[in-house]
């Protein structure tokens, strides 16, 4: 299979997937009880008539298939619809938020991969050595810490030492008046802690996996021979590393898909103005168009990630070209 065929097939496959994702979400949301306006009733001053009026105004009293088809027909015209609570085009609402989330998760992803692969290989060089054990312990520690708790501890640390800001994307007071240099520094400074949470809790799994794959690769006959023959360690590693490429590439593709949803609770605790708080609110408020937009974005990202990984595999490894 060639690259064009692969892309074509994936993109064609994406359409039914998006359809299914959207319908499933619509259905789950409608099953969940209440709608975008039921929350208002928590306020005793708000009457059932008012809520009924709002429901009628936005067609929420129509049956599910009608609402879904209406949403779908708008989507086909390139319109993601209006958020029920904000009365704004969803695309406008989520644009900036998506960028903020990607900034956070993208930075973390890069660090996770750099650290995970680097440290994993290091650990594999001397299995059960001191470094391996230490890294293993740290990996487990990270894997077993609920991210929310770590986030909170780091916030507490930030508050008591003053070394880092207590959440937020940037300084709310000064930002508007600063030049690009100060803004960049401020942004990085705000990124440190949330990224640290995501990296510390996320790197362990990859590290263990790379270590396992690497140990396996180092045990392969031709690699072992190369080592026995006294080839330079760098060369041996490169031989062994080739074994890691395919599984890791595939996984990297997969983890791109997690970029939009992976930082959920961390965003809440750190007051990060990302997609999470908006989407979470959308779930709570049953704001279907808003929720669907971010779920669809996540789905597209996942497929794209996998596609990129496959394309990379296709380019790098001639065998896959015939296997498909």
């Amino acid at each position: 299979m060639n690259a064009r065929g692969l892309i074509l097939r994936r993109v064609l496959g994406l359409l039914p997937l998006l359809l299914a994702v959207s319908f499933l979400s619509f259905w789950l949301l409608s099953r969940a009880g209440g709608d975008a306006f039921s929350r208002l009733l928590a306020d005793p001053q708000i009457s059932q008539e008012q809520v009924a009026g709002l429901r009628a105004l936005y067609g929420l009293d129509d049956p599910l298939p009608t609402r879904y088809l209406r949403w779908l027909s708008r989507l086909l015209q390139g319109d993601l619809g209006l958020s029920l609570r904000y009365q704004l085009p969803v695309s406008q609402l989520i644009r900036e938020r998506t960028g903020n989330t990607l900034l956070l998760t993208g930075t973390s992803l890069v660090l996770i991969w750099v650290l995970g692969v680097g440290l994993g290989v290091l650990a594999a060089l001397r299995p059960r050595g001191l470094l391996d054990r230490l890294l293993g312990l740290l990996a487990y520690l990270g894997l077993s810490t609920p991210p929310v708790l770590l986030a909170l501890l780091l916030l507490l640390f930030a508050a008591s030492t003053g070394l880092f800001p207590v959440g937020g994307l940037h300084d709310q007071l000064g930002w508007d008046g600063w030049g690009p240099g100060a803004r960049l520094r401020d942004l990085v400074w705000h990124l440190v802690l949330p990224v640290a949470v995501l990296v510390l809790t996320g790197v362990g799994g990859l590290l263990r996996q790379v270590r396992g794959l690497m140990i396996e690769a180092l045990g392969l006959p031709h690699v072992r021979n190369a080592r026995l023959l006294g080839l330079p360690e760098g060369l041996v590693l490169r031989h062994a590393g080739r074994q890691l490429r395919n599984p890791l590439l595939t996984q990297l593709g997969g983890s791109l898909g997690g970029l939009l949803g992976g930082s959920f609770l961390v965003e809440i605790v750190f007051a990060w103005p990302g997609l999470a708080s908006l989407t979470y609110e959308a779930v709570l408020q049953r704001d279907a168009p808003l929720l669907l937009a971010s779920l669809l974005a996540a789905a597209v990202l996942l497929v794209l990630g996998n596609l990129l990984a496959d394309l990379a595999l296709l380019g790098l490894d001639p065998r896959t070209r015939h296997a498909g």
Binding site: F164, A182, R185
Partner: peptide, 28 residues
């Protein structure tokens, strides 16, 4: 006010950017 807030923040924090250096010329 801004400086005061910053002074407390800066106390333990070398990494903190110093916005005053680049504050735009037009005053608050």
């Amino acid at each position: 006010l801004v400086l005061g807030a910053l002074a407390t923040l800066l106390a333990g924090c070398p990494a903190r950017p110093e916005p005053t250096a680049e504050t735009s010329p037009s005053p608050a």
